[in-house]
């Protein structure tokens, strides 16, 4: 099956100093790389999870897909086609890719009613003779909210309800792909399950593909088919979700999984596996970016950037000393 979305060797850079300031301060490279050498493919109707700590570049990557952030090099192909620059080009893409932003309440305009919020996409992309009231009712029904919610304002909604409105808004134009940035952040556990079940049901009914960005490993384990772990803009490990959880290959993945607290007082962790924090992108460590925190770092890690090597079942890992032996090194 040809991929719905394909990313090839993507690089996204942000300028941190203007040309003159860079010259004056002697900065050779006035850019920092938010996303580096990222490649992956997303099949129609499947779910791809993107996991990483803050600053790992996961949101930047998502934003680039819908053209909210310029791409430095590499390609983003949607249904085999690349959107080049112009906003009109992205307009068609944005019809098929919907975005659910972080913060369920904050991403809704406080001055618009629910009806206006969920039918806003039609005003931007064309009504085509649709009855907006009927559309609002249909969308509310799809996300499991009663029709009388149409007149409410965001401040009258609970976190879970606001999230449902976010989903309804994303569904409005019948997209093929929904990018969900932290869909469960800030929600209570009982509500978290409701939202994820809603997303899963909609996927089944409408054949949607999802790109879910999260730092919540417990959640992503249940909902995604494939997974990528991001660290400082790179995919350090990617592959089938189950393989990664059962047998993490990258020391960072292992550390992330170990940092997840278990809801069992008999299985308390005696020590912390990953010390310190993510280094600043402006001071990207030489060699493997993770070597500063890696418990398995060897001399080679400090000088040489590891290339992705292939493991079982199409899994890729960027590590000189992975926890699972690689089959072959790919370029």
């Amino acid at each position: 099956m040809s991929p719905l979305l394909e990313i090839r060797d993507l690089r996204i850079r942000f300028r941190v100093a203007g040309p003159i300031r860079a010259r004056l301060k002697g900065i050779d490279d006035p850019f920092l790389d938010a996303v580096l050498g990222v490649s992956f493919a997303l099949k129609p109707g499947s779910t791809f999870g993107l996991v990483g700590e803050s600053g790992s570049g996961k949101s930047t990557l998502a934003r680039a897909i819908v053209g909210l952030v310029p791409v430095h090099s590499g390609a983003i192909l949607f249904e085999g086609e690349e959107a080049k620059g112009g906003d009109s080009d992205f307009a068609t893409r944005r019809r098929h890719i919907a975005m659910m932003f972080q913060d369920p309440v904050g991403s809704l305009s406080p001055r618009l009613t629910v009806r206006a919020l969920i039918t806003e996409p039609f005003l931007i992309h064309g009504k085509d003779g649709r009855d907006l009231d009927a559309e609002a009712r249909r969308l509310l029904d799809m996300v499991g909210l009663p029709a009388n919610f149409a007149g409410r304002y965001p401040h009258e909604l609970s976190g879970g309800q606001a999230r449902r409105i976010g989903v309804a808004r994303a569904l409005a134009l019948a997209p093929k792909l929904i990018i969900a940035d932290e869909p469960t952040a800030g929600l209570d556990v009982s509500v978290q399950g409701e939202i994820l079940n809603l997303l899963v049901r909609l996927q089944r009914e409408l054949g949607l593909a999802y790109l879910i960005i999260t730092h919540n490993l417990a959640v992503i384990r249940h909902v995604s088919d494939e997974l990528a772990i991001m660290y400082m803009g790179r995919f350090v490990e990617q592959g089938a979700t189950r393989d990664i959880f059962e047998n993490p290959a990258h020391p960072y993945t292992h550390g992330l999984l170990a940092a997840q607290p278990l809801p069992d007082p008999d299985r308390r962790r005696a020590n912390v596996e990953l010390q310190g924090e993510v280094p600043s992108l402006a001071r990207r460590p030489k060699g493997c970016e993770f070597h500063t925190r890696c418990p398995r770092a060897i001399a080679r890690c400090r000088v040489e950037i590891p290339l992705p090597s292939r493991l079982d079942a199409g899994r890729l890992v960027r590590c000189h000393a992975p926890l699972v032996a690689p089959i072959a090194s790919t370029d």
Binding site: G255, A259, E277, V278
Partner: peptide, 9 residues
């Protein structure tokens, strides 16, 4: 983040 959370706990 989770790794920092583990350290704080």
């Amino acid at each position: 983040d989770v790794t920092m959370e583990a350290q704080i706990i």
